[in-house]
Design a protein around this nucleic acid. Structure first.
Lengths: 165, 165
DNA sequence: TGAAACGGGTTGAGAGCTCAACTATTCCGG
DNA sequence: CCGGAATAGTTGAGCTCTCAACCCGTTTCA
């Protein structure tokens, strides 16, 4: 319990810098979506994941994991999105405990409207600032970190590319 | 508004990976602090910045910018921290609009208790996973991003996002 | 078959955050 | 000096998120 492995000065600076960058970046992305599309990023992500799913439909638990959400959070969020008419829930036929969530046409439309502004923001704040080498490095670093952080592979596509390290 | 510069597949994967890693990392850090010390990271950061300041005292606006917080958020947070006895506020003598926030001895103690667990978590989740080269790369990337995200070293009211585009 | 354990999902309370509105002070031009 | 703009900080409403408790269906195993 004793003998904390404190951070060196260099590590501190790295941590602070990372913290600052990711927090500021996050805030900007969040604000852009909120003001430009009236959606929190968490909601945007739910719509986006559904839009990519076969039949635009997913089990709640699947949706939770692909959208990096707790079950509880997802439940609240989907309730809101359903009120707004963007998502529809129905019981899962094969497992009566389950629920299927589907993106409605209105939800798809909302997503289409929101996407350009969001993508533009991400491009400006992230990709326009980094060299190709830095982008590759960031990708590798993120993959390494994710591998240890996530209990399972979260998003099905692109898992195959995380071979080496 | 037309001609959105969509992300390439490669860019998408990078963005998703970064998003995933930083979100998961963030959640873990937040949860560790909340459960291990009963403090949200935002509060921890406020205490930490105060502890480093001369006299353990800062103007509210200074504290807001160094702790990456909006004025409003800081105001709420400091109100809570003051109730808890960790921070004390008093009017600023040189500017009667201002407030000075100081870390109390109890607050310092709380920070001392919270720090080891927090640092350990950061080390395990971040530094233990990355090679020295990756750490250096992450630092550089973060610096580049931060430089563009915050107009100056760190200023509070400079949140107007209408700059580019 | 029945009881416990597990898994899927929801709910409500409590807490923090954002946004906009507001007070009070200071700065600045005329 | 006066009046308007800018600055410092607070407040409250509304919303999202977390946590723990809960319900119901499914699986396990004796």
């Amino acid at each position: 319990m004793e003998d904390t492995r404190w951070l060196s000065d260099e590590e501190q600076r790295t941590w602070r810098s990372f913290l600052t960058a990711s927090r500021l970046l996050w805030d900007r992305v969040e604000r852009q979506l909120q003001q430009g599309a009236g959606l929190p990023h968490a909601y945007y992500e739910i719509l986006a994941r559904l839009s990519e799913a076969p039949d635009r439909t997913l089990r709640m638990s699947q949706l939770a994991s692909t959208s990096l959400s707790s079950r509880s959070r997802l439940s609240h969020a989907v309730a809101r999105l359903e009120e707004a008419g963007y998502v529809q829930r129905r019981p899962c036929p094969s497992d009566r405990r389950g629920q299927l969530a589907s993106l409605t046409e209105a939800g798809m439309e909302r997503l289409r409207e929101a996407a350009p502004g969001h993508v533009e923001e991400v491009r400006e704040l992230l990709f326009d600032r980094l060299t190709p080498e830095q982008q590759a490095a960031l990708r590798e670093i993120s993959d390494v970190l994710t591998a240890h952080l996530s209990p399972q592979p979260l998003w099905p596509a692109a898992v195959d590319s995380a071979a080496d390290e």
